[in-house]
Design a binder for these strands. Sequence first.
DNA 1: ATGACAATCACATAAATATGTGATTTTTAT
DNA 2: ATAAAAATCACATATTTATGTGATTGTCAT
Lengths: 213, 213
Amino acid sequence: MSDKKISVVIVEDDAQIREGISALIKSANEFSLKGAFAECHSLLAALDNILPDVFLMDISMPGMTGIECAAKIKSIYPAVNIVMLTVYENDSQIFDSLRAGASGYILKNTPLEQILDAIKDVNAGGAPMTPSIAKRVLGFFNETGQKTIEYNLTLREKEILHELVNGLSYKKIAETLFISIDTVRSHIKNIYYKLHVSSKSGAVAKALKDRIF
Amino acid sequence: MSDKKISVVIVEDDAQIREGISALIKSANEFSLKGAFAECHSLLAALDNILPDVFLMDISMPGMTGIECAAKIKSIYPAVNIVMLTVYENDSQIFDSLRAGASGYILKNTPLEQILDAIKDVNAGGAPMTPSIAKRVLGFFNETGQKTIEYNLTLREKEILHELVNGLSYKKIAETLFISIDTVRSHIKNIYYKLHVSSKSGAVAKALKDRIF
DNA sequence: ATGACAATCACATAAATATGTGATTTTTAT
DNA sequence: ATAAAAATCACATATTTATGTGATTGTCAT
């Protein structure tokens, strides 16, 4: 299907792993190895000359972490694909890596053939990750997505809170909802009581932070 | 490794696919099929009796979508695993599914053996998804992470805006930052000008919506 | 039928906020 | 060195908010 080899650069401080994977890539005729580095600085210095299709990047390395390095590479060449390679599945490492622009995240104990699959996946525009990593990512989703705390606001109160979030004054809200300003006041008093706040901005902050909408 | 079969229920309106996968599961001796449904209502009615380890859930079905159905199941049995099965990789479907509590998301054109792998993965606590789906999920990460609109607020202005978001009054801000209330006023005037708002709550809303922090 | 709740309105007042018009002192960049 | 930007403070005043204390009218479930 593919007409040319996928070029790879590996950055990994552990010589054994680095050379193992290097040998693997050299022996597979779908891939070509463009470089193998033990730390980030020498890679960055040589970057312009050896830019590959895909990076395999270790996370914990002396000097500069793979995450920082990935961010640097991405800032210069946004289109390259970077697969992080690590021993730990640690939430903050995963998220920092993803934020740095990594497109894949696999564990070092992954079978070698699957590492090659991951390189192919990422080169095809996919985002390879082990199911356990994916689980962490999804967990993040649910946390932030579900946090819809219920404050037992009535329908009308939610409407009014919504207008507060939109930045309307009491007067404008009264006009919009065709009620008197005193009614607006009354509702807002109750909203404050239920949300445990005592100012418009406090209510707005709570509404947005707790995703009442 | 596993001491008993993984029980599965499939919900899929297309008879051909439903029966194909049913046959596959019945023939594999690591799995047992606890039920196959063509739509959600009959499944929900029977749910208490046939609760499986893993659901395979089609998304587009007449009556109730698989996403709504997944949310219902999760609200009753939060621990069950649900793998969504679909023909489309559509951003909103993916995210709605994940929010509904799905732990996996695979395409119907996935090879049958990989569907079985996905069931095993999800049962083992993983989150199987194809690399292309994973890519979408990651894309979401970068979007929300990067959307830091810049309003050219100065350091001090950001500090003060931050205190506004925390719900402090002018007076409290003045005390917290050891400056006079008139200075606070002055900064807030400038913040309003830069954010194009004219009230505390408007500023707070903008700060949170545009993720200034 | 009746008590609980939701939604509406009124009046009063203290406190906080929004806005204008200045001015002085540091910092920062050219 | 010097102009621009950032941070500080002051005073005045109109508007808006926050809060309390009521009251009336529906709706809804027991």
